[in-house]
Write a protein that binds this DNA or RNA. Sequence first.
DNA 1: TTTTTGCGAGTGAATACTAACTAACATAGT
DNA 2: ACTATGTTAGTTAGTATTCACTCGCAAAAA
Lengths: 196, 196
Amino acid sequence: MQEFTDRQIEIMEAATNRISKFGIQNLTIKTLAEDIGLSEPALYRHFKSKNQILWSLLEYFKTEMENRIQSIPFKTSTSEADKLRAIFNSQLQTFVNKPAIVSVIFAESIFHYEENLSNKVSEIMDMMQEFVKANIIKGQVKGQYNKLIGSSTLTTIIIGGMRMTVLKWKLSGHKSNLVKDGKTVLEGILKMIEIK
Amino acid sequence: MQEFTDRQIEIMEAATNRISKFGIQNLTIKTLAEDIGLSEPALYRHFKSKNQILWSLLEYFKTEMENRIQSIPFKTSTSEADKLRAIFNSQLQTFVNKPAIVSVIFAESIFHYEENLSNKVSEIMDMMQEFVKANIIKGQVKGQYNKLIGSSTLTTIIIGGMRMTVLKWKLSGHKSNLVKDGKTVLEGILKMIEIK
DNA sequence: TTTTTGCGAGTGAATACTAACTAACATAGT
DNA sequence: ACTATGTTAGTTAGTATTCACTCGCAAAAA
């Protein structure tokens, strides 16, 4: 298990914010050092390379996300649909609290050239897909969801719809209501698959 | 209306290919010139800046896409669902024929720092959304689609599902069957909204 | 002859990263 | 209690390399 120092976390958060505000092109060791109020070489005391700053940042968020979702408390009586609602609510709320994260997590393309980074982004996406797919399968087995559509296709639709909502929120300059819009999309899909 | 010379189109296609293969970070005037077999200054005979190469490339594809979709022949008797099928089929087929385009069109984040470029990407996305939303509204008015979900939300779900399918195809290294997977997703959604 | 399209050889500004050094502090041996 | 030694976290001043872009000139096309 990775552990990070306070300074490392400070650096990772500053990096996330800069990417969110000005894009990855503007994330340089120089601008990053200025944001924190340190010299460039000081950053190299805490990370051995720029790549490692980005990698750690992704790892840090992945762990946070995994822990947060897995520790959502469910009663045994909770329906699969309600579990799905809780997972997405938690996820979208996190994005609202820290909008900068979205720019990094939803950016398969920006790390295209650095294999270890794009792999980390894929890992995060896969994790989210696993949560959703497991939910769908369970719900279909339990007879809570209909079986009009296969679980893989349904997962693609749900994750796709949510990602699209987040993208629109980002393009609106975070002015739209992400939690509400996300809920609307999810309820729409549930309306079509849930058996009441 | 913009017109491009043969040489300009050659440059734009080479740029698209390089972005697709190695990411935008690797698209430099030098590598681009080498791909075409010209010197760096020669490129500046055809475009006044690197930004303009990227802008033109987006404009070029946007126009192509608009014309292609609008010239799909429909009989008056064609159902809205069949129109939607035809539009997405045409779009996905274009991606399969020129996979490099996807890296550029689906890359809101890579142009984050250059306003005129991210605006162009938004324009392309908006255009696609308009086509879909118009189709949904018409279908609901004609009673071909049910009204369980509002047209905006449904548009988000459809576009989101298709984008997700394209993203998965890209991450698979273009090994999955995009046209087939896209059709499955669309049929899944139609199954839930179409009134037969 | 004039215009178009190419070239070799640059330019200044960034970029990630390094070298050499230092002040502040912790710890261990006597 | 005092000194020797090592560590942590920072500094200033660089390095080599890469970047988008330009200048002056030639050859070819119109």
